[in-house]
Design a protein around this nucleic acid. Sequence first.
DNA 1: CTGTTAGCGCCTTCAG
DNA 2: CTGAAGGCGCTAACAG
Lengths: 337, 337
Amino acid sequence: MTPEKTTLVDIARRAGVSLATASRALNDSYGVAAATRQRVLAVAEELNFVVSPTAAQLASGRTGRVALVVPHISRWFFAAMVEGLESVLSQAGFDVLLYHVDGADDRRDFFHRLPARRKVDAVVVIAFPIGATERERLELMGVTVVAAGGQSASYPFVCIDDRVAARQAVDHLIFLGHRRIAMIAAQDPDEPNWPATPGRSQGYYDALTGAGLPTDDGLVQTIPWGGDAGAEAMAKLLSLREPPTAVYAHSDEVALGAVRTLRRAGLRVPEDISVIGIDDHPLAELTDLTTVHQPVQQQALASGHMLLGILRGDDVERSITMPTHLVVRASTAPPRG
Amino acid sequence: MTPEKTTLVDIARRAGVSLATASRALNDSYGVAAATRQRVLAVAEELNFVVSPTAAQLASGRTGRVALVVPHISRWFFAAMVEGLESVLSQAGFDVLLYHVDGADDRRDFFHRLPARRKVDAVVVIAFPIGATERERLELMGVTVVAAGGQSASYPFVCIDDRVAARQAVDHLIFLGHRRIAMIAAQDPDEPNWPATPGRSQGYYDALTGAGLPTDDGLVQTIPWGGDAGAEAMAKLLSLREPPTAVYAHSDEVALGAVRTLRRAGLRVPEDISVIGIDDHPLAELTDLTTVHQPVQQQALASGHMLLGILRGDDVERSITMPTHLVVRASTAPPRG
DNA sequence: CTGTTAGCGCCTTCAG
DNA sequence: CTGAAGGCGCTAACAG
């Protein structure tokens, strides 16, 4: 099956050096004469040889791999994080092992079986809440852990301040003159301690009280994440005796769901009602949705570099919170009248 | 660093069996008394032991890993394919190695270095065009290759018929009565032989000629993939002396870009102009965009199962083309007048 | 700078 | 059904 039975010994022999030297040459470790290395490399090239990562790993103990643990690959935010991390890790010579852990069962299973055990040098949990017991299981792997796009347990992390982001969004609505501001909160029943939710809710209350506005539970809808749910939530808000003049959604997808309901109801956004989201999803730009931008790419890169630094033993910063900012587009305006 | 120095020997000793038996028990191979196996498993459980995949691999030759090669992780289609594949592969006990190969340089580098070499039992190229030389390089890996979400070289594949999908889209516009139908074609300069493009363009011409409509090069805009480019293309189409009454875009993202331009220009969709895309991106539903649905999840699962079958040596179907269908929403209507 | 020598931890015939 | 023994291919001291 495998077309190549070539091994390091063959290379060594052919290059007229010892196995050890060949190994050193191919790993550019210290202590190999330039000429010797050249020769070895040439032979390797010629025979189209690459060392067996497996054997190397068994002998060295390092895997050269890192696991990415993600709750939802196909959602933009997570996919973008994966993309960014993959890029810095692969550039550093690491292979990326992907673990999709979605839902309570999956998660239980993952932490129980620890499928990445003995397979990686580190794991990055992407926007993934980790409880005490889960952390304990992870410890078992005995590897470096970093949290990207959210804080988890007490691992080194890179994230944004969701509370601040939320406040930026709601403050904008208040600034425009809105006083009846609804919130559509995304809270997956499956992942009750999803880290972003509390912050994104708290920021809403912060903003309201900061402006001396009353809070009204009737204006708060809590739904599972997603556009359709957002649409339904908007429908409920619309059926209120006194509907809101503006809606703040925990995410752009949810906000777009709300917009759809409004459009279908014949209401104009933002003339009749304002809508704002969080994230700055690429489609927010396409749909002219006002939102709060969070630097996804940067978080991905920063967490990747943080991980590499830690692995390298450098004394790197282990808690990075990145700024977010309001992006005003065409879905928000002063209230009518 | 590693908290566990436990190895198979420890388990064997503790269970009072030989290394070989312990190995067999843990791999549930044939020829181990139920009782013996129980004992071994119990000890392993107790000591929280898992065999070293690395050592196992070195000895057995199998890696238990498959590589996913993707050109754009953060785009929904690809992310969804990855998600689906990951799910069936991980369920089958395989680990998933992710390789993001974006752009000409990356791609050259990937096929030159073959970073997945000797690391996987198979590779899945996701909607990834593979030329002759690239195929030759891949051969070097000596592993099973499957193409998912597009045909590549002559590998086993799962895909849709882009030409048919395109025709479904354009036929719909024609059916509504449109005669001046523009096309916004997405053709990355970086990936000139992106497999979907020709089909999605051809289907457009098929439909026009099928209906006896003239083709007009002025009505065809070719752009790199993306919403912004779609928006610009739409602007150009709008500046035509006689603008189209309907626009067919190669993808939903591109279509949404076009819609944005229309809205900003004060035109109503679909009253003033119709827009249709392809893919049925989740946000197409949120934005009430008419489109042609392609079964992404199913393609992912099918390709995963196909791969597993081939690996298993089963005599499975090696070319699957899945059906697409029109999804009429609110972005298309008969032309005015 | 280079060669020798042990393993790394397990799978797998091959006997028994 | 179980045990013994030989690698899998390479890295990492340790000597030269």
